[in-house]
Every structure is written in structure tokens, then in C-alpha cells.
Design a protein around this nucleic acid. Structure first.
Length: 230
DNA sequence: GCGACAG
DNA sequence: ATCTTGTCGC
């Protein structure tokens, strides 16, 4: 049964990946606004409900410009490697409610660092038509490829290379703190991804501000909903 | 049968 | 992702 699901997903991902813009010309200088996306889940009457929050951040001042959310039932199961099919529908609908127009979007999860180079950040770029970045808190193993732990210095990183291609980067954003796994979503290169990520780190978290903020908001919203419906 | 497994 | 208490540390 799960096989049937993933077969269909594989075909959709293949079709999407044919829609390729060739340039990775996005530069840090082009950013004024960057968005962060995250979801929180809970159970309600045997159903899985999620709220998606998107936070728009001013890249220079780090100020939170806008926060929007949307709640809905989630019917697709979580299968490792197929996260986007579970979370993207709600994300796309939430994105439509934004009044600001961020130049780039940051996701909780992988982009190119994925068995089919089609993690949620990459998949989303084709729907949002914007450059994207993947930020994962743990490693999704690709085949038998392990990652090498970077040295214990802020800004230290190692690359996850497969057949000569950089799939992603293991980045230490704070000393003595577990590294994060960053990768290109689309229309951007890995060095720019690294620069942007590091520019958005503060002392509060190992995660960059946009996804950190979205994570906080998403949990606030869940508290509100769960409290009001019982 | 057992382990692995973004969120 | 979520469930969960205390606890160590800045």
C-alpha cells in the first residue's frame, strides 16, 4: 500500500524536476525579505490537524515583518523521503495569504539533500516560483552515505558529496551545539545558502531566525486551537 | 525478522 | 512531528 503511494509520488516529482530554470543567480544582495515556514500537528476526533505558520523577516534588520497562519486537516501520512506531499498543500495555501512578497523562502527540512534531490524546499520552489533553502535539524541518510562531523567552531562545516556533487552541508551555527543540515532548494548555490543562513543566526537558537520564528509561532497557534476546542 | 526513518 | 519531568547551565 505504501508502495503504491510512493510510486505515484515518484512520478510527480519526476515531472516537476523537468521544469528546470538553469541559473543559480540568486545573491545575498537581492534579499530584502525572507520567509520561514513550519508546521505543528495534533490529533482531533481521530483526525490529524496541522497549523502552518509563515514568518516574513527583514533580512537586514532581522525584524519580523509579517506572520500568517492556516489550519487544516492533514490526510497524507509521513513517509521518510515524501515529506513534501504531506506538508506542501497547506504551505501553498498559507503562502497565498501573505501581503508581503519575500524574495526567498526557507523551509524546515531538506532541499537538494534528498534521495531524489527533491526535498520539500526544492519541491516547494516549483509551486511558489521562488528561490528556496532547506534547513534540517537531523540527517536523512542517502544510500549508505554518512556525514562527517564539522569541527567545534562557529561557522565550521563539512560537505555531503555524492559522485562529485555537493548534496548539502553540515553547518555548525554555534560552538558546542549540534550542527544543522543545510541544502539548496532551488535557483541558489550552496555558498549563498551558507552565507544567508549564518547571517540569520542569533544567540537564541542554532536555527536561522525565519524558521525558528515560524517554529515558535506554530506552537503558539497550536496551544490556542487545542485550548479553544476542548 | 530487524533496523532505519527530514518532519 | 508529538508524548513527557526533571534538570543542568547561562
Amino acid at each position: 500500500m505504501e508502495n503504491k503511494i510512493t510510486e505515484n509520488f515518484d512520478k510527480i516529482q519526476y515531472d516537476l524536476s523537468q521544469n528546470i530554470k538553469l541559473e543559480n543567480s540568486f545573491s545575498q544582495d537581492n534579499i530584502q525579505l525572507i520567509a520561514g515556514v513550519d508546521l505543528a500537528y495534533w490529533e482531533e476526533d481521530e483526525k490529524t490537524i496541522a497549523v502552518c505558520c509563515i514568518c516574513v523577516v527583514d533580512f537586514l534588520t532581522k525584524a519580523i515583518i509579517e506572520t500568517k497562519f492556516l489550519k487544516d486537516e492533514i490526510k497524507v501520512p509521513y513517509i521518510p523521503g515524501y515529506l513534501s506531499f504531506r506538508e506542501l498543500p497547506l504551505i501553498i495555501n498559507t503562502f497565498k495569504t501573505l501581503s508581503f512578497d519575500p524574495e526567498i523562502v526557507m523551509f524546515d527540512g531538506n532541499g537538494y539533500l534528498h534521495p531524489r534531490n527533491m526535498g520539500i524546499a526544492t519541491h516547494a520552489s516549483f509551486h511558489l516560483n521562488k528561490p528556496t533553502i532547506g534547513i534540517a535539524k537531523s540527517y536523512l541518510k542517502i544510500g549508505a552515505v554518512d556525514f562527517v562531523m564539522p569541527s567545534d567552531k562557529e561557522g565550521a562545516f563539512t560537505d555531503i558529496v555524492i559522485n562529485g556533487t555537493i548534496y548539502g552541508r553540515v553547518l555548525r551555527t554555534h560552538k558546542h551545539v549540534k550542527p544543522i543540515f543545510i541544502s539548496c532548494g532551488n535557483w541558489i548555490d550552496i555558498d549563498t545558502v551558507t552565507d544567508i543562513t549564518l547571517a540569520l543566526i542569533n544567540n537564541e537558537s542554532r536555527l536561522p531566525i525565519p524558521v525558528r520564528q515560524a517554529d515558535l509561532e506554530t506552537k503558539k497557534m497550536r496551544k490556542r486551537f487545542v485550548k479553544y476546542e476542548k
